[in-house]
Each structure stands twice: as C-alpha cells, then as structure tokens.
C-alpha cells in the first residue's frame, strides 16, 4: 500500500463520518414546512402542505360516508361528516404537531408531519 492509497482510505473514512453528521441537517430543513397527513384505513392517502393565508376545502369518501376537509392558514379540520357521532367535526381546527383528528366510523386520521414536543398526548 502506497502513501496515496492510505490517504485515499483516510479521505473516504473522513467523508463518511462527516456525512453522518451533515446529512441529518439537510433532512431537518424540510420539516419547517408544515404538512398535514390524511390517513384512511391505515394508509396515507393525502399529504397537504399548509401555507399561510391559503385556504381550500375538498370532499373525501370515508368507510362510513363522505366528509369534507377544510384547510385555512396553517390549520385543518373536518367541517362536515356523514358519520353518526360527529366527534371529528366537534374536534374543530388543529394546528400544532401532536394534535390529531380521529374519525373512528370513517377510519380517518389527520395529523401533522412535524416532530411533536412529546411522545404522546393523554386526553
């Protein structure tokens, strides 16, 4: 092994180590954008990037019946639902990581992508 070989090996090693620390930083920059995730029957069916001063609403079909999702300036809610108890509608707007809307009859969960400050919320 020549001196050049050794240098090469050390360089590769150093780059590898550096990447380990540098790569996660790139991943983090993405999470500044808030994304709401809609899951149906265990599958992610929609990812919505929430933007300030932008609103929209759309209809979706749940296991039990249709429901309407409303998005407005960084918050999201289920505004109408054909489910019997309507706990999902009563839940109202959610806007921070860790919060979620759950509709049991429709098997729908809406939550935020960003890291929550806690592991779970008791309610």
């Amino acid at each position: 092994m020549t001196r050049a070989d050794k240098t090469l090996i050390i360089c590769v090693l150093l780059v590898g180590i550096a990447m380990y620390f540098v790569l996660p930083l790139f991943n983090d920059t993405d999470s500044h954008k808030t994304q709401a995730i809609i899951k149906q029957e265990g599958q992610i069916v929609k990812i919505i990037t929430l933007v300030e001063n932008e609103s929209s609403s759309f209809k979706m079909q749940g296991k039990n019946g249709p429901f309407i999702v409303e998005v407005d300036s960084g918050r999201i809610r289920i505004s109408e639902s054909a489910c019997p108890d309507k706990f999902c509608v009563k839940r109202g707007w959610i806007s921070s990581p860790g919060e979620s809307i759950i509709c049991v009859p429709n098997e729908v969960v809406i939550y935020f992508d960003a890291q929550s400050p806690v592991d779970a919320i008791t309610r």
Partner: peptide
C-alpha cells in the same frame, strides 16, 4: 423517559402539562 403531554381541556392545541 417517555414524555407525555396532558391536553388543555379547553384548548386542544395546547398542553396544560407534561
């Protein structure tokens, strides 16, 4: 340890304790 938030009973976007 596991960190658990207790929901604010009148504002679901807040935690009232951890």
């Amino acid at each position: 340890p596991w960190k658990i938030g207790i929901q604010d009973p009148r504002d679901s976007s807040r935690l009232i304790g951890t």
